[in-house]
Amino acid sequence: MKHTPQQGANRPRRNTPGGATETTPQKRGNMSQKAQMRIATSRFGQVQCDADAVLKFPRGLVGIPELTHFVLLDGSGPLRWLQSVDEPEAAFVVADADLFVDAAITAAHDDLLLIGAEASVAAVQVLVLLTIPADDPSAATANLMAPLLINQDNRRGVQTVLPDHFPVQHPVASRFCHPLPAMV
C-alpha cells in the first residue's frame, strides 16, 4: 500500500513536489498562517509539513548524532515513519512502544532533563524503532532497549537506553515483552 495522506491537525502533510527545503509562510483563506516547510525525502519525494511539527533530537540517535531533526509521517496501520529533515534517505519505521511493552518503563533522569520532561512525563510519547529484514518483512523486530522519548509539549526527543533488560530485537509478531530483572 502507499504512504497514506495525513489527517490530524498538527500532523505533517504530504504535498505536491515543489522547491527546495525552506520555510515558507502560507497565507490561506482561513486565518491560520502556520509556517510550512518542505522536506526532501528519498522515499516520499517532497513532503510538506508544519514547521512546528519538527521534532528536535539534540543528541541525534545513538551513534548517529548528525540526525537531529525529524518529522513523523503516517505509514501503515500503527506504523509511522520518523523521517529525517537533515538527510533525505534517513527514515525509520516507528511504532508506539505500548504495542510491544506491557509494563511501565524507567527512563534515565538525564534523558528526561534533556527533553524537559523531568517534572512530568505526562506529555512524553514513547516510540520504538523497527528493523525490517529486506528478505523477510514478517521477521521484523522492534528495538525495545533503546526507545525514543518525545516530549509533545516542546517536541524535543531523545533516544534513551533503558536500564531494564529489554531486547534490541523483539520480534513484532510475538507477545508483549516483559523486562528481565535488572542486573546490578
Partner: peptide, 17 residues
Amino acid sequence: ENVRAAAGTPDQLDQVV
C-alpha cells in the same frame, strides 16, 4: 540496530502490519 532500522522501505509496511 539504528543503521539497520534505517533501511526500511514503504512497500514492506503492510506485510509488517
